[in-house]
Design a protein around this nucleic acid. Structure first.
Length: 499
RNA sequence: GGGCCGGUAGCUCAGGCGGUAGAGCAUCUGCCUUUUAAGCAGAGGGUCGCGGGUUCGAGUCCCGCCCGGCUCACCA
């Protein structure tokens, strides 16, 4: 097959075409043609409209002295009609040599076929690039998930809906940027390689800088750097970038993933709740055209987001009919009877995760978190065992985490020391002491609200994708091993040189 | 890491009580000037994921390994 296609390059060149062509100045993209002329009748297409389009050949139906092909560009297709008496002899010879997957340019006029399909009546063909490998089958597309992830380019060619997912992803990110900029946030970039990792509980990837001879960690979160910027007086900052966590892979976890983090001085977690509700609603609108989307057969309404405390969620979703009372979930002894964790706060979180989390299908904000699991959040005024923090859950997934930032350096020092104790007890994920961060707080950080939103997961929800790998162009997989294409190409090259 | 499922032609998939491997699309040849899962006639194409074992004989049975999916654990 490879040899056959390779030989065809010479035949195409013998006709005077370049097998790998030059720039092509099209007049319209295929989506533009469909949008602009898709609803015009055959009659309205006269006088003729001349266009130049280009794309990849998706299908071919040859009928002797004429034929049809579908040209695919940007996930949409336009039919091309080529007939012997409408093109030059040379172009017709080229048409006969075309393979599905070749990239060509076509100039001609628009018309409707007998069956009513908008098509381009070819007057001239331009050869732009040759495919040497066969394309996936036309009506199933490429289904093998491993190939789809490893060879994403093939997935994007063969499955138009795969392109749509990544276009929506781009819209999600653009929408959030636009909304934050409109509110006076500025986009910043903070280190991906950090001497100390922090801002989340996770195991890091380690790398090494040769000249400085130091180990560095790929960041697990940008949080501590962004808050240094708040200290510095950049009152509203955000960053959209990758975090790296050296942990398991699943349908909801990829080792590198994209987070939006934003920090707003002089607000608190209540202010961020209101902002989040607005951001999510508008992002859903911008990405999908509606605040109501379908996910896995169920309805998600981003325009009405419930707010529940963690304790209320435990009560509401309790597995038995006779749920606990508010007094129960406040009572350390009651909690101890239902969880084996070390402290009342950890017990409550444990219960919440077991009882409620999977049921949080409709977009829901959960607030009032215990202090033990939140080393960087500010204590609640009315209960120092809790912090002013909330998380956003949709379809059973956590997609956002926000809190009033702890800005008291003494308290922050004590929290870090508490984490160090946990670390000594063997908790690898406990937070490290970051003295420069404490020093920054010593200069005074204004009251601040900070939030992180997982953009991969948000994109999953807005594209109806069940796996995070479907919204990451190149998800991490084990390396593939030898492919052998270089050897095959070299063999063809040697053969060509010899002949 | 555990459990379950999968890997057969370029693609999508069948098949199998152990006996020389199948279809559709794609490819090649011929016919066909409005087709659209175009059609008709013919042809080629496979170390059945890899390695061992059992057997006269393994794609099929057994063991190990590789790759992937789902799921549980951990996390966002």
């Amino acid at each position: 097959m490879l040899a056959q296609r390779h030989a065809r390059i010479r035949e195409i060149e013998a006709l005077g075409f370049r097998s790998y062509g030059q720039r092509f100045d099209f007049t319209h993209t295929i989506p533009q043609i469909l949008a602009g002329h898709g609803s015009m009748t055959g009659g309205e297409l006269e006088p003729t409209i001349q266009v130049k389009v280009c794309g990849r050949i998706q299908t071919m139906r040859r009928m002797g002295k004429a034929g049809f092909a579908h040209l695919l560009q940007l996930g949409e297709k336009l039919q091309v009609y080529i007939r012997k008496d409408a093109v030059s002899e040379r172009d017709f010879a080229l048409y006969q040599l075309l393979d599905i997957g070749d990239i060509v340019g076509v100039s001609g006029y628009l018309f409707r076929t007998r069956t009513g399909e908008l098509s381009i009546h070819a007057g001239e063909l331009t050869f732009l690039a040759k495919t040497l490998l066969t394309m996936p089958e036309k009506w199933h597309g490429l289904e093998d998930v491993e190939t789809r992830y490893r060879q994403r380019y093939l997935d994007l060619i063969a499955n138009p809906e795969a392109q749509k997912v990544f276009i929506t992803r781009s819209r999600v990110i653009a929408s959030l940027r636009r909304q934050l900029e409109a509110r006076g946030f500025i986009e910043v970039e903070t280190p991906m390689m950090q001497p100390l990792y922090g801002g989340a509980t996770a195991r890091p990837f380690v790398t090494h800088h040769n000249t400085l001879d130091v180990d560095l960690y790929l960041r697990i979160a940008p949080e501590l750097y962004l808050k240094r910027l708040i200290v510095g007086g950049l009152d509203r900052v955000y960053e959209i970038n990758r975090n790296f966590r050296n942990e398991g892979i699943s349908t909801q976890h990829n080792p590198e993933f994209t987070m939006l983090e934003f920090y707003q001085a002089y607000t608190d977690y209540q202010g961020l709740m209101d902002l989040s509700v607005e951001l999510l609603r508008q992002t859903a609108m911008d990405a999908t055209g509606s605040a109501i989307v379908e996910y896995d057969g169920r309805r998600l309404d981003f325009s009405s987001i419930r707010r529940l405390t963690m304790r209320e969620a435990v009560i509401e979703f309790w597995m038995d009919a006779e749920g606990p009372s508010l007094e129960n979930v406040r009572d350390p002894d009651w909690l101890k009877r239902h969880s084996s964790k070390a402290t009342p706060g950890e017990m409550l979180v444990d219960l919440f995760e077991r009882v409620a989390e999977a049921h949080l299908y409709e977009p829901t904000i959960i607030y009032e978190y215990p202090v033990e699991t939140s080393p960087l959040s500010k204590n609640s005024l009315d209960d120092p065992a809790f912090v002013d923090r909330f998380e956003i859950y949709v379809a059973g997934m956590e997609i956002g985490n926000a809190y009033t930032e702890l800005n008291d350096p003494q308290e922050q020092r004590r929290r870090f020391e508490m984490q160090l104790t946990m670390r000594e007890r063997g908790d690898e994920e406990a937070h490290q002491m970051d003295e420069d961060y404490v020093r920054a707080l010593c200069y005074g950080m204004p009251p601040t609200g900070g939030e992180g939103i997982g953009l991969d997961r948000l994109t999953m929800l807005l594209t109806n994708s069940r796996s995070i790998r479907d919204v990451i162009l190149f998800p991490l997989l084990r390396p593939e091993g030898p492919i052998g294409i270089a050897d095959e190409l070299r063999a063809l090259d040697d053969g060509g040189a010899a002949s």
